[in-house]
């Protein structure tokens, strides 16, 4: 597969996240002490400072917290996609996730809109997580 966009740096800390995506699962760290979920991956719980955590699957459902339709000023890898919608989604479980919103006209996006995760295989090793309007696949 020929994927020309930036590839994530996968570390010991973040590997379980990317591994989850390959199994079509969106996973986040859940603090072993206070159960609070966090994203992006961090070694320490921002709520209670515990360093113990487990990876937990989340629903992939949430709402648009903010968004922007990008019309220019991007690197060559993204120029063919213009215009595209970058979103920050607030998941029902709490954490916020940046991604792209797909299967939605830029004019139709609004804050508060319900969205759900879509898994896209970028390469044989890399699966990405994007979001679409929650009713899009129905």
């Amino acid at each position: 597969m020929n994927y020309s966009k930036p590839i994530p740096e996968i570390t010991l800390l973040t590997e379980p996240f990317w591994e989850g995506l390959r199994s079509k699962e969106l996973r986040m760290q859940a603090c072993s002490q206070c159960s609070v979920l966090r994203f992006i991956p961090k070694e320490v719980c921002p709520d209670c400072s515990s360093v113990d955590y487990v990876w937990q699957q989340v629903s992939g459902l949430g709402m648009v917290y903010s968004y922007t339709t990008i019309h220019g000023g991007v690197g060559p890898a993204f120029r063919d996609d213009l215009p595209f919608v970058t979103v920050i989604v607030e998941l029902d479980e709490g954490p916020r996730v940046m991604s792209h919103l797909i299967n939605c006209l830029p004019d139709a996006v609004e804050i508060g809109m319900r969205v759900s995760v879509v898994f896209e295989d970028a390469t044989e090793e890399l699966t990405l997580y994007k979001f679409e309007p929650h009713d899009a696949g129905r």
């Binding site: 994530p8 903010s66 990008i70 970058t86």
Partner: peptide, 18 residues
């Protein structure tokens, strides 16, 4: 981070979302 970089995000995108 990679979690921003992979989406082609840049300062303009973040400021726009703010």
């Amino acid at each position: 981070s990679s979690f921003e970089h992979i989406w082609g995000s840049n300062p303009a995108a973040v400021y726009a979302m703010a």
